[in-house]
Nucleic acid binder design. Sequence first.
DNA 1: CCAAAAGTGTTGACTGTACACCCATGT
DNA 2: ACATGGGTGTACAGTCAACACTTTTGG
Lengths: 220, 220
Amino acid sequence: MPRFYQSVTTDIVIFTIEESILKVLLIKRAKEPFKDQWALPGGFLTENEEPEKAAIRILKDKAGVSNIYMEQLYTFPGSGRDPRGNVITIAYFALVPRSRIEIQETAKAQTPIFRSVKKLPDIAFDHNRIITYALKRLQSKLEYTNAVYSLLPKYFTFNQLQNAYEIILSRKLDKRNFRKKFFQLGLIKLTKKIHRGERQRPAKLYQFKLHRPAELKKFF
Amino acid sequence: MPRFYQSVTTDIVIFTIEESILKVLLIKRAKEPFKDQWALPGGFLTENEEPEKAAIRILKDKAGVSNIYMEQLYTFPGSGRDPRGNVITIAYFALVPRSRIEIQETAKAQTPIFRSVKKLPDIAFDHNRIITYALKRLQSKLEYTNAVYSLLPKYFTFNQLQNAYEIILSRKLDKRNFRKKFFQLGLIKLTKKIHRGERQRPAKLYQFKLHRPAELKKFF
DNA sequence: CCAAAAGTGTTGACTGTACACCCATGT
DNA sequence: ACATGGGTGTACAGTCAACACTTTTGG
C-alpha cells in the first residue's frame, strides 16, 4: 500500500466568559493564506508531535495558560482550507477563566482578542464551522460533566455558577431549582470565605471538589 | 512557521450483531508492522483524500457495504503505532446489519472475520483501545440517537430491536417499558408484514421511518 | 394440547418544574 | 431607609420502574 503524507494542523477554540458574554479567542493571521483575517489560534504539528501536545503548546504560547479543561473536538477535512493542497485540522476546545489568561508577548503581534461567539467577525478557513461545532459540544458537556469548573475562578458564588450555565445555554434557569439540583450533585463544597464589598448581601463562596474532568449520571 | 508532514491513517470499527453477539470486523495484516496479527480494517489516506472519504472507501473495499451509519470517533496519536515514526489515525465507527455484509474478493486474502467484542484476540497497534472507545460511544449513542436503525434489517420485530439494545448495553430491559418508550419516540412504524414460520405466535414487523442519523431529546 | 415467544396496563416512587417572599449588606 | 442581589420550601405534574398474565402459533 502506498504511503502518503499530509499536512496536519491543530486549531483550538478557547472559550471564556467575560462581562457575562461567552467569548472565543481569535488572532489575526500574520501570513497567507487569509493574511490579516481573524482565525482560531492553531498551527502545524511539528515533526512527530502528538496532536494533543501541539494543542497544549499553542494554548501556552498564545494564552499563557496550562492545566485547564481541554478536549478533542473533531478532525475536519481540509477542503478549501489551503490553496496549496489539503490540510486536515484536529480541533480542540478549551475552557479558561478570564482571570487566568495572560496574553503572551510573543503572541501580541497577532493582536489576540476575545470575541463574543454571537457576534463573530469574518473568519478565515472554515473556522466558523469549528466554532459552531465547539459551542454545541460545550453546551452538551455542561449537561453531563463538571466542565464548568474550568470557566470559574477557584472560589465562586452560586450565582456566578448559574450565570455561566445561563450564558452558555442561552436561557434562564430557575434559581431555586438550580441550587437544589447542582448542590445534590456533590461536585462543589461550601467554603468559609465570603464575597463582600458589593452593596448588597454578601455571598457565600464555593469551590469545586475536583479540578479535573468527571462524568455524571444526569443533569439538566 | 515550518511545515511538517505526517502520515495519516484511518481505522474503522465496524460493528454488527450476529448470533446475538456484538461483533467487530478484524482482518489479518498482510504486512509489517504487526504482520499476521489481527487489526481493524484501515489504511493510509491517499493524496489529498478526505478522511471520511477514505473511511467510506475502506468500508466498501473490505465489507462491501455503503450507505450505513458511520461517524468519526476520535483521532488517536501514533505513539508506538509504527516503528518508522509517528502516525496518527482518524478512527471511525460504523454499524451494519449482518445480512448486508459481503466480504469482498479483494479482501479475502486478509481473512476478515467478525469477532465478539467480549473475546478479542491479540490485536495490532493500539486497536484495542480504539475498540473500547468505540463501544462506549456506541452505547451512549443508543441513548439519544436512532443509530440502531443501521444494525437491523429493513423489517424487524420489536424483540429484535430490544435484543439489539440489550446486547449492546449488556443488560436486560423490561419488555413492556421498552415497547412503550420506544414506540412513543415515533421513530418506527408498524408495517402490514408479519414474521411467521417459527413455532410460536407470529410477530409484527416494524420499520424505521428514517434511515439516516437523527437526534432525540431523551431516551434510556 | 403443549411449548415458546408475542403482546398488553396499572401502581407507587421519584424527579422536574413552577412559583414568591424575606435577608443582609452598602450607600 | 432603600435598593440590590442573596438565599430559601412546597405542591403539582410528568416520568420511570416494577411487575404477571393472556394470546397465537407450530409441532
